[in-house]
Design a protein around this nucleic acid. Structure first.
Lengths: 154, 154
DNA sequence: CTGCCTCCCGTAGCCACTACGGGATCAAGC
DNA sequence: GCTTGATCCCGTAGTGGCTACGGGAGGCAG
């Protein structure tokens, strides 16, 4: 298990960083993780640097950064290349996106919740859930296109 | 432009329902939209039924229902097959997922916001944004699954 | 040395589209 | 009737970020 040579096998790295083994290989092919040295038999051997880098990547991904954003942050994380301002820019941009998604999801939640709630209250002839998707829903404000109306729905 | 035969060309349907033309063809290949009649030259000719169905699909997608969920809802929307209870089930399941994502995104937002805010406050030596991703940060929260990581899909 | 676990690699699949490109068809103006 | 320019056709490939599969080879404990 490579314990004597002071290195980790791929599966051990995977467990240590909480990342799928296949994902590590994927990160290597796209150049997010460096290609590590190998045993004579061709098995990858990782060290602490790899563990920290992979953990960094994983946290970035969990926080919703794209692969390319993580790649940029990794470069900025290098003390020689470090630039807090650039890192902040990336995070701020991402934060804006997250807030947009939050707003959309919140609207979505209220629409869905309302439909489902109306469904439980009374046995109405037209199903409120299907009605929500149907063409003749609610107040048909004049001058609005179908497009506008369903945007309104969000 | 097919106005005399009382039908819509593909592009007109696209505009009427607010859906990309290519997307309509895609929906046809996966059987979500029926194959419409054609002109002698092979162009598709749509009618009001298609418009309504496509609008239904589009609204379902906007509300975050998967293609398969929309497919199920379309069947339930048929008066002969109509089942409000089943429609409600689908919507309720989806609502639960939406609430999960909302919770995750909210957590995300506060972490990102805190990092970015700390970054503006003072010129600290260790960048708070990069620190957030570094190895010695707070609770590692293992057990995050693909589900959490796929928050971006919204 | 034998069994069993792990790792190797390449490829294909997932979702829901979007993009591309070269050719055919349509409606309208002249 | 003919040309023009917009529209539409179709198939294929690409997107992001992995995950799954499968047959074979390496590694290590008993």
């Amino acid at each position: 298990m490579l314990t004597k040579v002071r290195g980790l096998a791929a599966g051990q790295l995977a467990k240590a960083a909480g990342v799928n083994l296949e994902t590590i290989r994927y990160y290597e092919t796209i150049g997010l993780m460096p290609a590590p040295p190998r045993t004579p038999g061709g098995h990858r051997v990782y060290d602490d640097v790899h563990v920290r880098r992979l953990a960094f990547i994983r946290r970035g991904r969990e926080l919703g950064f794209s692969i390319e954003e993580v790649r940029a942050l990794l470069i900025l994380n290098d003390p020689r290349q470090g630039s807090c301002a650039e890192a902040k820019d990336i995070a701020a941009t991402h934060l804006t996106e997250v807030r947009h998604k939050l707003a959309d999801l919140t609207r979505l939640e209220s629409i869905l919740a309302a439909s489902v709630a109306r469904c439980t209250s009374e046995p109405l002839a037209p199903c409120p859930v299907l009605d929500m998707l149907g063409p003749e829903t609610s107040s048909p404000r004049a001058g609005m296109t179908t497009y506008d109306r369903s945007l309104d729905r969000l």
